[in-house]
Simulated scan of single mutants.
Amino acid sequence: MFIKIVLFAALLALCCAVEFQILNREIGDIWVGIQGNPGHAHLNSGGFVLRPGQRVSVHSSANWAGRFWARTWCNPNTRHCDTGDCGNKLECNGAGGVPPASLAEITLKGHGGLDYYDVSLVDGFNIMVAIEPLGARGDGSRYSCTKSACQVRLNDVCPDRLKVRNSQAVIACNSACNAFNTDQYCCRGAYGTPETCKSSTWPENYPKFFKDRCPDAYSYAYDDHKSTFTCKANAYLVTFGG
């Protein structure tokens, strides 16, 4: 009886699991980072190497919530990555990525039983990213079961004051909060509400740079809500690079 219960539970978990296919379209290796939200598992121990052109599937529970990001310029000897590093290790195991890093975020079976997903540049940009449902049909609207993406190489056109460099290249484009650490740019203190933190009133509207080029991505803490996509799907494709 015990064995039957275990087998049934395993089959139930399998039938209700969601697949995430992670694809690398860059010309070099990336180190994938995965972090579950509080109370959720860190899939595949939170990280693995993804070769150019390689696609790897990871599976989650049906109600998982978390984020995916790519770590770039990684040294396999020191295990340090110049962008998105999670503590000089391959498997992040719950650690988040150091900004700036482009994020693909998702909450499965959220309000109304829908999956909510988005691309966020709130922590800046390091690599092109997209997330899209596979084999699902939406209601025909722009944000229903369609691709959410930032597929512009922002590092090439990043404002000078936001550029992050290593010894070889511009490797990321910082957020204003990370770059300047002021209450206004970070939407905190007196600027901690949507009414008091409007990027249009900032000394320099840096979120507009991101939003103009990647309109479907969140650009700062109180960006509009039009960047949230919804669907019901059993599989999602997360693509880095392009």
Rank of each mutant, 00 (worst) to 15 (best):
N126Q: 08
A65D: 07
H80V: 08
N178G: 12
L90N: 04
V164E: 05
S120P: 09
C177L: 05
D29Q: 08
G192A: 13
R188M: 06
F229D: 04
W73Y: 10
Y117H: 07
G135K: 11
L11K: 04
M1A: 14
C86G: 05
C173T: 11
L11A: 10
P38V: 01
T201S: 15
F229T: 02
I131W: 06
C231S: 09
V164K: 14
T193Y: 03
I5T: 15
V164R: 15
V157K: 03
L50T: 05
R67V: 07
C15L: 11
N205L: 00
Q184A: 15
K163D: 09
A136I: 12
E26S: 10
T182M: 08
G242Q: 15
V49I: 14
H59P: 02
P207G: 00
L90D: 07
P52L: 05
S200Q: 14
T78W: 11
I27F: 06
S120A: 11
C150N: 08
Y236N: 03
A172W: 12
R142S: 14
W69E: 00
K226H: 14
G192L: 06
G47W: 02
D216K: 13
G135C: 09
F68T: 07
C187R: 09
E195M: 09
R79T: 15
D156M: 02
F125W: 10
Q35C: 07
P76R: 11
T107H: 12
P76V: 10
A130V: 13
F2R: 08
Q184F: 08
A13S: 14
C145I: 12
R161F: 09
A10G: 07
N44E: 14
I5A: 14
M1K: 13
C16L: 14
I22Y: 03
G53F: 02
R213W: 00
R137I: 15
G87H: 10
L11I: 02
R79S: 14
L14K: 08
C187S: 13
Y236F: 12
L103M: 02
D29Y: 06
Y220R: 04
F180Q: 12
C74L: 00
V58K: 01
Q168T: 15
A235D: 02
A217L: 10
S148Q: 07
F240Y: 05
L237E: 03
A101R: 03
Y236Q: 01
K198S: 13
K226P: 00
Q184H: 11
P99R: 04
G36L: 06
K211D: 01
Q184D: 11
G140E: 08
G46R: 02
Y222R: 06
K109G: 04
V122H: 04
R51Q: 11
V56R: 04
C158V: 08
S57F: 00
V32G: 11
T182V: 13
Q21V: 10
K208L: 07
N88L: 09
N63D: 03
R153E: 15
T78I: 07
W31H: 08
G36T: 03
Q21A: 13
A169M: 11
C187A: 12
G39D: 00
A13M: 12
S200R: 11
A217R: 07
G124L: 08
V58T: 02
G113N: 01
C158Q: 07
N181P: 02
T83Q: 01
H40E: 03
A233P: 00
G94W: 03
T83D: 03
A70N: 00
